[in-house]
């Protein structure tokens, strides 16, 4: 069963050359989905499209069996933490939580109390005096103290100290353990690698990689080559995803399972296919644009 389906999605903005284009993306229920990309890649735009905060120019989005514009049917099922975690600065933390309890569908007071122990914020403190990290903690309470089937989190750990980051990741895993679907964007490659089941990488509004994390790791490998040796390999030998040229070395991200790697090593003894991690993939695809083949 799919939680989200996107087909031929396109979104552009006035006075901006940026266009988000996603041809095909789907997400299975109950999984943790990571959205990666450099600043301005379109992660926040995509999440806003899912929340109907911005509207697509064209394309199809289905979320929990509904179109995003069917907010009445979706508002009790989706919990959203935006990138910008501003709340009403003239309210105190306590007032904001009181207000949220009346606004947020499916608010759970017991869960809110539990979360207040994890994120210990002073109730009397005005929101205007909170640091960015504290605002994120307050938003975490608002986001998780409710029943929802889907949690959309835009950079949920930004501004948090390592202890709070860990708490946040635990919450995400806890929700996933309860069968909830999580979509979250992050710049923290480590936390994505640690938490997600599947991921997508965006660059300049285009999805450059998408898939199950374990599958990606087994299907992709990395070659580190001196630039002078590249010409020794016939192009048809490799299924190259992207290359990234460093000072004297080229990093080549290739597609192929264990068999392909063994064959490659047998044919070219000087090649040493290496396993990849998200950091490698991200750097090759994103750094300096990453030359797609």
């Amino acid at each position: 069963m799919y939680t989200m389906k996107i087909k031929e999605l396109c979104k552009s903005y006035k006075n901006s050359s940026f266009t988000l284009q996603i041809t095909d993306l789907s997400l299975e229920a109950g999984s943790i989905f990571g959205l990666l990309g450099p600043n301005g890649a379109g992660k926040t735009s995509l999440l806003k499209l899912l929340m109907d905060i911005v509207r697509p120019d064209r394309g199809y989005i289905e979320i929990l069996g509904h179109r995003p514009s069917e907010r009445e049917k979706l508002q009790a099922k989706i919990s959203y933490m935006p990138e910008n975690k501003n709340l009403y600065h003239n309210m105190t933390v306590k007032k904001m939580l009181d207000y949220a309890s009346g606004i947020i569908p499916g608010w759970d007071n017991d869960k809110a109390l539990e979360l207040k122990n994890i994120f210990p914020l002073e109730g009397k403190k005005r929101i205007s005096t909170l640091s960015y990290g504290e605002k994120t903690q307050l938003y975490a309470i608002l986001t998780f103290a409710r029943s929802a089937d889907l949690f959309i989190l835009d950079e949920p750990t930004r501004g948090l100290d390592p202890i709070m980051q860990e708490q946040m990741l635990q919450l995400i895993k806890e929700k996933s353990g309860q069968g909830k679907t999580i979509i979250f964007s992050s710049h923290q490659l480590g936390e994505i690698e640690e938490s997600v089941d599947s991921l997508a990488m965006l660059r300049k509004g285009h999805m450059v990689l998408n898939g199950n994390l374990d599958d990606l790791k087994s299907e992709l490998f990395l070659l580190k080559l001196e630039k002078s040796k590249i010409s020794a390999i016939p192009p048809s030998t490799l299924d190259i995803i992207a290359t990234h040229h460093q000072h004297k070395q080229s990093l080549i991200l290739c597609q192929g399972g264990m068999e392909a790697r063994q064959k490659l090593q047998a044919d070219f003894a000087f090649l040493n296919p290496e396993n990849v991690n998200i950091k490698d993939i991200f750097l090759i695809l994103m750094e300096n644009g990453g030359e797609e083949e």
Partner: peptide
């Protein structure tokens, strides 16, 4: 201006 509309838009209909 203060980006508080995200809180409203994600919890209530327009």
């Amino acid at each position: 201006e203060q980006n508080t509309n995200y809180f409203l838009l994600s919890n209530r209909t327009r």
